[in-house]
Design a protein around this nucleic acid. Structure first.
Lengths: 94, 94
DNA sequence: TAAATTTGGTTTATATTATAAACTACTTTA
DNA sequence: TAAAGTAGTTTATAATATAAACCAAATTTA
């Protein structure tokens, strides 16, 4: 039987964010925006959702005088991502 | 760069339908309903969307006196599914 | 140095999508 | 023949994604 997929990860943009954070471990808002080609508004909303879920950790600071938002994936986020991948494999016949 | 995923396949229920049809080649509405555990209404809507896209072919007939809807995956559907799997692999780091 | 533009976002409104509830048409069973 | 079951569709609503509008501060330009 196919398992219910984590709806928080089964979203193109949120999955892309998580995928990037799995690789780089830490990334700025602007980097994520460039890589995903999302609008700032959409990215802001989805980052907040991932943060609320405890999948990522967001730290706000400054790079010189310019505000900077840094995102890190959490242990919980890594586990959720890995679980999602395993569940999705059944759908994809992998 | 991560590719844009086919929105028609990036839906849990539609993906489940396609996944089942890839395996069995042909399936009745009731079989799909049992396997996916979807409500009939939701299933009906999603089947129609896949049909409209040309990803599946729907044949309506009768099993005795009882109406029966049979779904088959099309060549286009198989190709779209395979493309989706390849694109998604980048997200999943597979 | 004042106005315009850019950077780095958030908030809010709207469009899209998913889902469930209500309904239809027919059949079987009590 | 009334009630319940089968096999769905249509329609209304809830959830989600996305974009547009907005904000504050910094930087560039005239």
């Amino acid at each position: 039987m196919l398992k219910k997929l984590d709806p928080l990860l089964h979203s193109e943009l949120r999955l892309a964010i998580m995928s990037l954070l799995i690789s780089v471990e830490k990334a700025g808002f602007t980097y994520l925006k460039e890589q995903t080609e999302a609008t700032a508004g959409n990215l802001s909303v989805q980052v907040t959702k991932l943060e609320d879920a405890g999948y990522i950790f967001v730290k706000k600071g400054f790079k010189g005088k310019i505000p900077q938002t840094i995102c890190n994936i959490t242990k919980k986020g890594i586990e959720a991502f890995e679980k999602y991948v395993e569940e999705l494999k059944d759908y994809l016949k992998l």
